[in-house]
Design a protein around this nucleic acid. Structure first.
Length: 550
RNA sequence: GGGCCUGUAGCUCAGCCAGGUAGAGCAGUCGGCUCUUAACCGACGGGUCAUGGGUUCGAAUCCCACCAGGCCCGCCA
């Protein structure tokens, strides 16, 4: 990898290095995972990769990045001939640290602070508990994207007892671990407390307890509910003191040692992490390697996605961009593209970016099928590889390709029930040649229409903006309303508008502007004749008449 | 105190992670199409790729330094 200098072909303009896998960052990561495993002398029969899912609030687009990318690594491993599996692991034993915004007000979640999210009632009332609800949203996103994963939950794993042998080791060597945590993070807490949080038998909270001693022969842990500081806010302990069994599933490990345990128990060879977890991962790597004797998984660190408040959405829905929102406007592949095209760097993402990704997907498809030529060849090859991954190794051609914004612009103003016909007709009038029955068109029109209406406004957004009309104009509009009803086509309607304007001594441009205001609440718009014809003359006539009778 | 990200055309950004002649969208100018407008189509983009060094035949891309902005950790999980 570092010998590039010597393998280049001097002067010819193109590096001669062989491509690893398909030439994307995922291939490089997979390659490094494999090389590392070989060096460690571990068996490569099945290389398991893991992604973590948080269940503390409504999942946004960034929460899906880890899991989608982990699936990408699985594919890249398989491209290189190594069998792989992807575990999507939900941390539903974690306590609720803060009540997130945007949840139903039905129950007061404040009272559940520090309770495991899998033991808090579902505020939406439709799942077994809070964590389950969030997990379902996450899975809905993953399923709609189409990635493969084996879903595991912390609460079930603790209940099943699969961590018990590892926990015994950790708790027996807690002194050593406590010192190391101090050394790496400066945190002194675990020099005293064991890195395990029993769920308080009395108050049901996890983080408020402090485990004081562990009896290996009986697997029992003695603890007291002393309280804790979460997000800068102190939660008083209830004072309960008692014992719990390691095997009961009534407690969880501290993050400082929990990942390591999971890795060892599930035989995880690769897991990425967000930069905020850097120090925790460092501790866990050490624990995994030296306490549990399981060489820690290969990691990459990624930057987080930022939410750029969606302009039109910020008021009503908050700045949250959820997978469900994405799918209202775009297909799964576009989201995968966003995750796969690049791993480095912070990205601010909002619904305004959706058209770009949809169009880039079409472009990538054209590159893949050779309809667009990209130089140098190596670059083209890597882009083709990216397309293969984005389509989950099943590249298909989904024609025709219409720029998303154009579709959105046309579709948002299309009549309600005939949007596809309307858009197709407009498209064909401007030089495209598309069919109404194309499933791609149907899907795209629907998505782009949603996007157009939500971000730019649709024709149903009229309201208080009815124009002030002169008497002349009123008369002209009323007459027009009557006359268009017997018009035989779009051209005739268009002519009628001009005629009415001239007949009543109105500037056509003014007349048009008033009509646009009435019909679309804007001063400009699509060519009116065909538009009115498509919407339906009766409907338009009614609208016009009601506007002049106000 | 430690770590990371960003800085590219008037604006928003892509390209950087595997170096090979500076890109897109929007805005702008001109033209085309349309019996309005928008859309659409065509033409027009000399920006020291923040700055200074280095590596290289070749650097926006790699390395070092530096400036500016932002984020994370330094509570807890």
């Amino acid at each position: 990898m570092t010998q590039a200098k010597y393998t280049k072909n001097r002067g010819s303009g193109v590096p001669q290095r062989a491509l690893i896998g398909k030439g994307t960052w995922m291939d490089k990561v997979a390659y490094q995972v494999i090389e590392r495993e070989k060096k460690l002398g571990r068996n490569l029969d099945l290389v398991r990769v893991e992604s973590g899912l948080g269940a503390s609030g409504i999942p946004h687009i960034g929460n899906l990045s880890d899991t989608i990318r982990a699936y990408g690594i699985q594919m890249a491993l398989e491209v290189q001939g190594v069998e792989s599996e992807h575990v999507a692991y939900i941390d539903d034993m974690d306590g609720l640290r803060k009540v997130p915004q945007g949840l139903p007000q039905g129950i007061n979640l404040e009272q559940y602070i520090a309770h495991p999210v899998s033991r808090i009632p579902d505020p939406f009332g439709c799942h077994r508990n809070y964590g389950d609800h969030m997990g379902a949203l996450l899975r809905d996103g993953m399923d709609r994207v189409g990635i493969k994963y084996s879903y595991q939950s912390a609460s079930e794993n603790y209940k099943r007892g699969i961590f018990v042998p590892y926990m015994r080791t950790i708790l027996s060597r807690s002194e050593e671990i406590g010192k190391k945590i101090k050394e790496i993070t400066g945190q002194e807490k675990y020099e005293e407390a064991l890195p395990y949080f029993p769920i308080c038998k009395n108050c049901g909270r996890v983080y408020t307890t402090q485990a004081m001693s562990f009896e290996r022969s009986t697997d029992s842990i003695h603890y007291r509910c002393v309280g804790t500081t979460l997000r800068g806010k102190f939660s008083e302990g209830c004072g309960y003191e008692g014992d719990t069994k390691l095997t009961s599933g009534e407690g969880k490990l501290s993050w400082k040692v929990e990942f390591a345990t999971r890795w060892a128990a599930l035989d995880i060879r690769y897991e990425a992490y967000g930069k905020e977890l850097t120090t925790s991962v460092k501790v866990n790597d050490w624990v995994s390697d030296l306490i549990l004797g399981f060489p820690h998984p290969y990691h990459i660190k990624y930057e987080l996605f930022l939410d750029k408040a969606g302009k039109k959405f910020s008021k009503s829905e908050g700045a949250l961009l959820t997978p469900q929102t994405w799918f209202r406007y775009a297909n799964g592949s576009s989201l995968v593209l966003l995750m796969f095209k690049r791993i480095v760097g912070t990205r601010a993402i909002s619904i305004d970016d959706i058209p770009k990704y949809m169009d880039e997907l079409d472009w990538l498809e054209d590159v893949y099928f050779g309809r667009i030529n990209v130089e140098p060849k190596e670059k083209a090859q890597r882009l083709k590889g990216l397309y293969e991954y984005v389509t989950f190794m099943n590249p298909v051609s989904r024609q025709p390709h219409i720029p998303y914004r154009l579709l959105a612009d046309l579709a948002r103003l299309a009549p309600e029930n005939k949007s596809v016909e309307y858009v197709v007709r407009r498209l064909n009038a401007t030089g495209y040649n598309v069919s109404e029955s194309s499933p791609v068109i149907k899907e795209r029109v629907q998505l782009a229409r949603n996007w157009g209406i939500d971000t730019l406004g649709g024709h149903e957004t009229e309201g208080k903006t009815s124009p002030v009309l002169t008497e002349k104009t009123r008369a002209a509009i009323a007459e027009l309303a009557t006359r268009i009803q017997s018009a035989s086509g779009a051209d005739e309607i268009q002519s009628l508008i001009f005629e009415e304007a001239k007949l009543n001594g109105i500037q056509p441009s003014e007349f048009f502007r008033d009509l646009y205001r009435i019909l679309l609440s804007q001063e400009r718009g699509p060519k009116l004749g065909p538009y009115i014809y498509d919407v339906g003359v009766a409907r338009v006539a009614k609208k016009l008449l009601s506007a002049v009778s106000e």
